[in-house]
Amino acid sequence: MSNDSDLKEAQQAANRHSMQDGFVIVMVGLVLIVGSGSFVIPAYIVFIAFFVLYGPKALESLRERYTYPRIGYVQFRMEETATRLAAGIFGFMAVCFALTLVAMFIVQGTISLDLIYGWVPAWIGMTMIGPSVFGADQTGSRYYYIFGILAVSTGFAISILAHDLGRLAISLYLVSLGLVLTITGLVTFGRFLRKFPILESAGEVIDEQ
C-alpha cells in the first residue's frame, strides 16, 4: 500500500491508550537498576536472567489486575516486526560500541579495559536512542525523545566527569537512569489509577447479548 499513514496513526493511538499504565517504564527502570549491580558484582547477572524470564509474566499479571479492568484488554500483532526490531536494536548497539571505540582511540590514542569501562555510560546512552525512537514511532508521542536525549547527555556527562570511577561510573549511570524511569513510571501509574476507575461491567459484555 502506498499510503498507510492512517493505519499507522490508528496503531499509535492503540499503543498510547494501552501504555497509559506506566508499567513498561517501571519495568525498563527496574531492569536498568538491577543491571547496574552486575557491573559491580558479576553474580548479579542472575537477577537480569530472572527479569528476562519472569518479567513479561509479571507484567502481564499486573496488567490483568490493574490495567485491563480499567482500560480494557488488547493484544498487538507481532508479525515479523519483532525479529526485525531485535536485529535493529542489536545492530544499533554494535554500531554505537564500534563508534565509541573509534572515538576513544582518536581522543585518547589507545584502548584499554579501563578506558572502555569509562566510556560505557556514553555507549549505553547512545544505544538508548534506539528504544527512544522506537517508543516515539510506536506511540506517536514525542516524550520518548526526552528519554533518549537525557540518556545520551547523562551518559556522556558521566563518562567525562566520572571517568576515573571505572565500573562504578557505569553502575552510577544505570542506577540514576533507572531511578528516573521507575519514578516516572510510578507517577504515571498513580495518575492512571486516578483517571481510570475500575469498570464494574468490564468483561461481562458477552452475557448481555
Binding site: D6, L7, A10, Q11, A13, A14, H17, S18, Y68, I71, G72, Y73, V74, Q75, F76, R77, M78, L199, A202, G203, V205
Partner: peptide, 18 residues
Amino acid sequence: MTQLYVVESADYVFLMGL
C-alpha cells in the same frame, strides 16, 4: 474495523475507551 485491523485482538472496554 480500522482499530481491529491494526491489533491482533481487543475487548469491548478497550474499543469503547479508544
